[in-house]
Design a binder for these strands. Structure first.
Ligand code: SF4
Ligand code: SF4
Lengths: 154, 154
DNA sequence: CGAAACAGGACCATTCAGGTCTTTAATTAG
DNA sequence: CTAATTAAAGACCTGAATGGTCCTGTTTCG
């Protein structure tokens, strides 16, 4: 139903919460903070580490810390790391549709896909933080709505 | 990976192709036109009929035809009919997250969700048609990009 | 040396999308 | 008026992918 993967959602939450902590934080600690099951937190952190979002410190007194500022991480990049690149349909980027039917809509989907991706690339994790939720992000939305002809459907 | 349901994709394709035909069209005929398996086409058409996108004519010489113009159907409304309302995360519209963790990000997700939904509501099926793909939709995208600060991530 | 914590992978369980089948109703030909 | 024809409507099943868990190995600090 055009919903985000739960793992991707968790990744965002974990990164934001990690940004609010000082020093290195262990997986169990992050699990306690976020409420996400411990093994799942570990799994997500492994992926994030592999993609360079967090830095890991092995051994006793180890843990994770952000590799860079939250402002330098876009929502789209995190989603792409966890769930793979954003692709609404099978035919984005010139890929052939698996059913082999060449309906001429491919181009349109490509454009829509790019639009959504750009939207998510324009939103940093910094602006996802609760205190800024109702200011930074909201202003972006207002600008978006202003430029669009909202059409009534159904 | 933030991908559209295949059924929803088919629904869009079927509606656009149906709009290019005259009179009533049968499921097998639409299956031949679109290349989508026949039973699947029938299933999609049932849903579309139940939601008032198409009108059905039963019996011999029956079939389907559009209930209204393609210009009066938004991409978002079709997706909502087939896959349910667009909801990136579990906590949109004030619903409680199933994990019970109240991370303060809910508000931010709500805003992002609304932004994407508005984008899809602003795109009609008429502008999905191949011949207009590289004009109508593209201009909307350009305006979108202009209003956003595209931030580099990863 | 031992405990603590990450790395990496394999594994299972559940969900739901995708597809198929049967039933039911309407239309038209005879 | 009846019956064969045709398509819609609904129920059902299957399979792939996601989400979640666990286990083993490696590294670091006390
Ligand atoms: S080619 Fe048509 S049916 Fe296939 S994924 Fe693209 S839009 Fe959908
Ligand atoms: S409450 Fe937080 S973890 Fe739950 S769905 Fe919303 S953003 Fe995701």
């Amino acid at each position: 139903m055009l919903k985000l993967s739960r793992l991707a959602d968790y990744a965002i939450v974990i990164l934001v919460k990690l940004g609010e902590q000082d020093g290195v934080v262990t997986s169990p600690a992050l699990a306690a903070i976020t409420g996400v099951p411990e093994p799942t937190v570990a799994k997500v952190l492994k992926v994030l580490s592999a993609h360079g979002f967090v830095l890991s410190q092995r051994g006793a007194k180890g843990g994770y810390r952000l590799a860079r500022s939250l402002a330098d991480m876009s929502v789209a990049s995190v989603i792409a790391a966890v769930d793979g690149q954003i692709a609404l349909t099978a035919c984005v980027g010139g890929r052939e549709c698996d059913t082999g039917l060449s309906c001429g809509l491919c181009g349109s989907w490509d454009v829509i896909n790019t639009a959504i991706r750009s939207t998510l690339e324009g939103i940093s994790l910094e602006s996802m933080r609760p205190k800024e939720a109702c200011s930074t992000v909201l202003t972006q939305i207002n600008k978006l709505n202003a430029t669009q002809t909202v059409r009534e459907g159904a």
